[in-house]
Design a protein around this nucleic acid. Structure first.
Length: 493
DNA sequence: CTGGGGATGGGGCCC
DNA sequence: GGGGCCCCATCCCCA
């Protein structure tokens, strides 16, 4: 037994290491690409400045009245600017000859300095060149994989994002950038700036559906259409605990934070940027695992493919993460720390509108499943999800989860694609996958995913047996027991 | 093996 | 429409 366990652990570790190596390779490639882009940008800038200078001299010679304007522009380009318009320039950090990943990019805007954070999620076929995360750094960030903060702009005004006016070119490599500037003026910059590219395919259930949000019916970042009805994959994150007893379960770190409870559905018209965070989480190597998970769900409803390839993540701020993967990871797997930290950085910002259930899958590292809420339970989340999928899939194969025979089931579980008629149901259902058990018994600390289950459980403590047999007087805690009892013992009566 | 009982997931109804 | 609740089915454990 022990030998088997050790062998299993060794295999798991090997898988982790392999995946980590792949991931690191992708990171490296992405960084290289990012550096190249930065260099290119710098060259363009220099060339433009030179051209402007030339033009300025020419204008000075002909129209002295233009000097002021051009000087102003020039100054702006150097980062001294006082522009109020759309012209912005990057200021190359002093002392560096080339752009590096960790260099801040200062966006001079209106005399203030803003941080420029852009993440572009490009189509999945970029995988051919290595599905990497090309991260653009901003001030205060030390390492892209430790980039802690993704703010979806939930609080306050909705995030303003401007898509690149030029329509995304057709495949194979569509790219769209949405730039947000977190700074004094919260202005929106178009992405003539550098972009951070994240390759991702979310919920690609296998078909070769490409990543045109419009085609997918996402609008800007919305919900994909589905044949016959609106299918809304629901991303859900609910509160951790309702009746917290302060137990030490590793996954209750978010329990006391009221803001930890939120649920979001991908709404075509109101798609918060949190979605992007979500999608970002599952990019890269996760796809490997995701595909296996989602393909299970796909068995139910072939053709109901949800693909989100191009989404944008807003990165800003310096808010520290509230949940550290360190506390959830055993030692000996620190190789994946960066990986996990990055993931956590995307997840733990409480302002993120949506919360990726994928984080519960973690990477396809079974060891990491200990991060799941079900850690304290008899089986890990990995098994739980798969088993749950199997279970949930059964009824869906019948009439079809979205066939709408009785009631239109337009809310799709993003884990298994199972359809539900209302949002609460799918949120409730998704706890099967996430392992969330927000309802805790105050008597025995047992937890439940549903309130009614907790209520039922409480009868164990109270000894409540409200259902009495009218024939023999025997009492039962649930009606079903009474019915079974009566069928067996009093069926002839 | 069987029955009782706890846990859990889905569907439906009511407010 | 959402939340709460109930009913039902199923799985599992245990005596």
């Amino acid at each position: 037994m022990e030998v088997l366990a050790n062998a299993a652990v060794a295999e798991i570790c090997k898988l982790v290491d392999d995946d980590y190596a792949v991931f690191r390779l992708e990171i490296t490639q992405s960084r290289k690409e990012n550096r190249a882009l930065r260099r290119k940008l710098l060259e363009l800038k220099v060339a433009r400045e030179r051209a402007e200078r030339t033009m300025r001299e020419r204008v000075v010679a002909s129209r002295p009245s233009s000097v002021k304007i051009l000087d102003r522009y020039r100054g702006m380009a150097r980062g001294e600017g006082h522009t109020t318009g759309g012209q912005r320039s990057f200021v190359k950090p002093a002392g560096h000859n080339t752009w590096r990943d960790d260099q801040p990019i200062t966006v001079d805007e209106g005399g203030g300095t803003s941080n420029q954070h852009v993440i572009v999620i490009e189509s999945a076929d970029a995988e051919a060149t290595g599905p990497g995360v090309k991260q653009e750094r901003s001030e205060g960030e030390e390492d892209p994989w430790h980039s802690r903060d993704i703010q979806a702009g939930v609080a306050g005004a909705p995030p303003v994002a401007t898509e690149d006016p030029t329509p995304a070119p057709a495949l194979p490599r569509t790219r769209r950038s949405i730039t947000e500037v977190s700074g004094t003026q919260n202005a929106v910059l178009k992405s003539e700036t550098k972009t951070l590219t994240v390759t991702h395919r979310l919920l690609n259930t296998g078909s070769d559906h490409r990543s045109d949000p419009e085609r997918l019916g996402l609008g800007r970042l919305g919900c994909p259409p589905a044949p016959g009805s609106e299918f809304l994959p629901v991303f859900h994150q609910s509160q951790r605990m309702v009746h917290s007893r302060g137990d030490s379960d590793v996954l209750d770190t978010g329990g006391d934070d009221p803001s930890y409870s939120y649920a979001t559905e991908m709404d075509p018209g109101n798609m918060p940027l949190g979605l992007e965070t979500q999608t970002d989480l599952s990019r890269g190597d996760w796809n490997q695992y995701n595909s296996s998970v989602y393909s299970e769900g796909r068995l139910d409803k072939e053709g109901e493919v949800i693909v989100v390839d191009e989404v944008t993540v807003k990165v800003e701020g310096d808010a520290p993460p509230t949940w550290n993967a360190d506390s959830h990871l055993g030692d000996g797997h620190s190789q994946g720390r960066d990986f996990l930290d990055y993931r956590e950085s995307l997840e733990t910002d409480l302002n993120i509108t949506t919360h990726s259930p994928l984080h519960l899958f973690g990477d396809h590292d079974p060891v990491s499943t200990s991060m799941g809420p079900s850690d304290s339970h008899s089986h890990n989340l990995f098994d739980q999800v798969l088993n749950s999928n199997d279970r949930a899939r059964v009824p869906a194969q019948g009439v079809g989860a979205t066939s709408g025979n009785s009631k239109e089931k337009r809310f799709l579980c993003m884990f298994c694609n199972k359809g539900f008629s209302c949002l609460q149901k799918v949120e409730r259902h998704q706890r099967v996958h996430t392992g969330e058990k927000p309802y805790s018994c105050t008597q025995c600390e047992k937890r439940f995913s549903r309130q009614d289950h907790l209520k039922m459980h409480l009868k164990v403590h109270t000894g409540e047996r409200p259902f009495a047999c009218t024939h023999c007087g025997k009492r039962f805690s649930e009606r079903r027991y009474l019915r079974i009892h009566q069928q067996k013992n009093h069926s002839t009566l």
